[in-house]
């Protein structure tokens, strides 16, 4: 499964024509820069202004402005190909590895430019961790999976420090009790849900400030999904979490704010209960009531 390409497949809008299925039609001019709700925050972790992303000539993200507050959980929802994953991957520059991808606009983490030429992407990713759609543990032991990040960043000089970090991270991911007796067995031998929690443990082992989650439950069964959602609630105490999801129920359960994306536009951002109970935009309403998507 080529996740890099699939990211492109999902997020590049196939057509630039107005969406017609929902009954209402909007063209780019009617949506661009007209986000309704509360896109801005007082104490932002991320400050994003007029963000545009291009794949070659195709404009995948069409001028999005958004603040993401400290220690909030924000969910990105929207139909397939609406650009939510692309937008998420801009936040720790995971799009860098795609040659044809260009990012424009102002993207700041704690007031510092993410795409600045002097910005070290390695340092950025240590602060902004990521959990992917498909669990992707390294073909190494459970211990090494979690210890890898701290090792390469030199966070632990002694074995005992590293052991502490591994235990703390696995506890944080709610996996410690299940794997404490077999830390040396391969991470790929765990079940899907356990693998995804291992990936979360791996991401939080480097103590990031933000955790990006790109549909972290889409490959999991409902029980494993419930565990991850509990985990997100716990993690939200100490991390800023940005989660892309296809499940509106999930967004409703875990997030403080919800952002609705449509064909590369950010249509509406608001407190989650407001988005789901009293959407302000016609497109949002169509989507959450299941008229399209």
């Amino acid at each position: 499964m080529n996740t890099m390409n699939s990211a492109i497949d999902q997020d590049v809008p196939v057509k630039d024509e107005p969406e017609t299925r929902g009954g209402a039609t909007f063209n780019d001019a009617e949506l661009e820069g007209r986000t309704v709700g509360k896109p801005f925050a007082d104490d932002p972790k991320f400050t994003l202004r007029d963000v545009e992303v291009f794949y070659g000539d195709a404009r995948a993200i069409k001028g999005i402005s958004l603040d993401i507050a400290k220690n909030e959980v924000i969910a990105f929802i929207g139909p397939s190909g609406c650009g939510k994953s692309t937008f998420l991957r801009c936040l720790n520059r995971m799009n860098d590895s795609i040659d044809i991808c260009r990012v424009k606009g102002q993207l700041q983490l704690d007031g510092e430019d993410i795409y600045d030429a002097k910005r070290d992407v390695v340092e950025l990713r240590a602060r902004v961790g990521m959990v992917f759609q498909k669990p992707n543990p390294f073909p190494k032991s459970i211990y090494d999976n979690v210890a890898y990040g701290p090792r390469i960043h030199g966070l632990a000089n002694r074995k005992s420090d590293l052991d502490d970090i591994v235990e703390r991270s696995l506890r944080g991911a709610g996996l410690w009790n299940e794997v404490k007796d077999r830390l040396d067995s391969p991470g790929t031998g765990l079940s899907g849900g356990q693998q995804q929690r291992l990936c979360i443990a791996r991401a939080i082992a480097v103590s990031p400030e933000v955790v990006l989650m790109d549909e972290p439950c889409s490959a999991l069964d409902p029980i494993a999904t419930a565990r991850i959602e509990e985990l997100i609630a716990e993690l939200s105490q100490s991390y800023t979490i940005i989660i892309v999801t296809h499940s509106m129920q999930q967004a409703a359960r875990v997030s403080d704010r919800t952002a609705y994306f449509h064909l590369g536009h950010l249509v509406e951002v608001n407190e989650t209960n407001k988005v789901f109970t009293a959407p302000q935009h016609e497109l949002t309403e169509s989507y959450i009531t299941g008229r399209f998507g």
């Binding site: 996740t3 890099m4 720790n92 590895s97 992917f132 992707n136 390294f138 073909p139 890898y148």
Partner: peptide, 26 residues
């Protein structure tokens, strides 16, 4: 698999570390 590469990049491995620690052994 690109997912392994992404995983390593996602926790901040440099290009060289991705290659030496993950791509080359596999």
């Amino acid at each position: 698999p690109p997912s392994i590469r992404e995983a390593a990049e996602g926790i901040g491995a440099s290009k060289m570390q991705v290659v030496l620690h993950h791509v080359l052994p596999l």
